[in-house]
Amino acid sequence: MNTYAATINATEYPPHLKHKVIFETFDQLQPQESMLLINDHDPKPLRFQFLSTHPDGFNWEYIEQGPTTFQVKISKL
Rank of each mutant, 00 (worst) to 15 (best):
M1C: 08
M1T: 12
M1E: 09
N2Y: 09
N2E: 13
Y4N: 07
Y4H: 05
Y4R: 03
Y4Q: 04
A5N: 05
A5L: 03
A5P: 03
A6Q: 08
A6V: 03
T7H: 03
I8C: 05
N9L: 01
A10M: 12
A10Y: 01
A10H: 01
T11N: 15
E12K: 12
Y13N: 11
Y13G: 09
P14K: 07
P15Q: 12
P15D: 13
P15R: 14
H16V: 08
H16Q: 12
L17H: 09
L17Y: 11
L17Q: 14
L17R: 14
K18A: 10
K20N: 10
K20M: 09
V21G: 00
V21L: 04
V21Y: 01
I22P: 02
F23I: 11
F23C: 05
F23G: 00
F23H: 05
E24H: 13
T25S: 09
T25M: 02
D27K: 15
D27E: 15
Q28I: 00
L29H: 06
L29Q: 06
Q30W: 01
P31A: 07
P31Y: 01
P31S: 08
P31N: 09
Q32R: 11
E33C: 03
E33K: 06
M35D: 01
M35L: 15
M35G: 04
L36C: 10
L36M: 12
L36D: 04
N39L: 03
D40W: 05
D40H: 14
H41F: 11
H41W: 11
H41A: 09
H41M: 03
H41K: 10
D42K: 07
P43T: 07
P43W: 05
P43C: 07
K44R: 14
K44A: 14
K44M: 10
K44Y: 13
P45V: 07
P45K: 07
P45Q: 03
L46E: 09
F48C: 01
F48P: 00
F48H: 12
F48Y: 14
Q49W: 03
L51I: 06
L51Q: 14
S52L: 09
S52D: 08
S52Q: 10
S52R: 14
T53S: 12
H54C: 09
H54S: 09
H54Y: 15
D56A: 10
N59M: 09
Y62P: 07
Y62E: 06
E64T: 15
E64L: 12
Q65R: 15
Q65L: 10
G66Q: 04
G66H: 02
G66E: 05
G66L: 06
P67T: 11
T68G: 13
T69C: 08
T69I: 14
Q71G: 02
Q71N: 05
Q71F: 00
V72E: 00
V72A: 01
V72F: 00
K73A: 14
K73L: 02
I74V: 11
K76S: 04
K76Y: 03
K76P: 06
K76C: 02
K76G: 07
L77V: 13
